[in-house]
Design a protein around this nucleic acid. Sequence first.
DNA 1: TCTGGGGTCCTAGGACCC
DNA 2: TCTGGGGTCCTAGGACCC
Length: 398
Amino acid sequence: MRRIAHLDMDAFYASVEWLRYPQLKGLPMVIGGGRRRDDELIARLNIEQPEHVWTADDLALIPVDFFPRLKDYVGRGVITTATYPARQFGVGSAMGLMKAARLCPQAILLPVDFDEYRRYSRAFKDVIRDIAPVMEDRGVDEVYIDFTDVPGGEREGGRVLARLIQKSIFDATGLTCSIGVAPNKLLAKMASEFNKPNGISVVHEGDLQTLIWPLPCRKINGIGPKADARLQGYGIRFIGELAARERAWLAARFGKSYGAWLHDAAWGRDDRPVATESEPVSMSRETTFERDLHAVRDRAELSAIFTRLCQQVAADLRRKGYAGRTIGIKITYDNFAKVTRDRTIETHTADSVVIRRHAGQCLKRVDLTRAMRLLGVRVGKLIKTGAAVVVPPSDDLF
DNA sequence: TCTGGGGTCCTAGGACCC
DNA sequence: TCTGGGGTCCTAGGACCC
């Protein structure tokens, strides 16, 4: 029988920040918005507190009062992470920073530092792969691990190996994680939430009724807000209630494929393998403007942004060694309506000029009388072009 | 002054071919 | 002339996830 683990880093972004700024632990804190540079903080400190020479080694000594607060934020960013003391005020993930500032103006605001999070992400994944090589990357702070063929992976249902991984990650990075071990990915994912933070949960097939069925349907990875609302419309709130419905009844209402999947999920059935490798399907770049832009009135500004997006996506493709032949755009209008247009061309490309030309044709097929808040460029139907190319920042300008 | 950015997968209709 | 499958590709939109 398979033993699959799901590992979830605890409060990953905030925890990485606390490694640098331990003085912020326990305070209401929000991560979101633009880029921060530690050297800018240091430079400001040296101006405002010239009696001491501040260096990059002094990050842990920066006075708490010196950090930016939510109330000083101006812009259209959203919250990526809110710490527990901040959540007490009602702020949470995906909330606009301006709205959050009204709820908790004194919260510390740290802009996201993806480069740093990626560094720690690589570090903890390297630790895992050294111990259990069959690992599936599920984003910056999550992985699935197949324990089945790891020596000792069965001991105590996987708990022993999970403990070893937890300890090794903490020793290497100073970060904690929560792990769920179960017969498959679906159950392991739910199990990893049972005992947070720094916990381990082991779920066996026989635990379905006692541990899984009492949970709300929304806890199943793959049931989102829309499906959950529809289920609730039928009086189905808990996984046990979902399991009680006939497969055919679900298929008739949710479609043959999704209906059958809902039934399987409620019964804890999932045979997806742990995929160690995957090829990208598409690459894209998008940006939300600081203010809504109009195709005619803001033509020059929009055009420059459009060109930059095409250059960025072309650079991404070449850096990673891919080319694509479906080129498309995405627009979000000021009223939040979204449209996409794309076209497929004869030959694969990673050339910003070609991308810009075809994306430009796509733009002509949408309503440009409405003001826009977001513009995106996407390249799909990718093939590998071979070795990844080092793209200097100035490349692809023309 | 609510609502980011980067992905995957599925569905459904139409074109086109055999 | 009418009718009918099956299969693939393309396009647009939407749900969902991290």
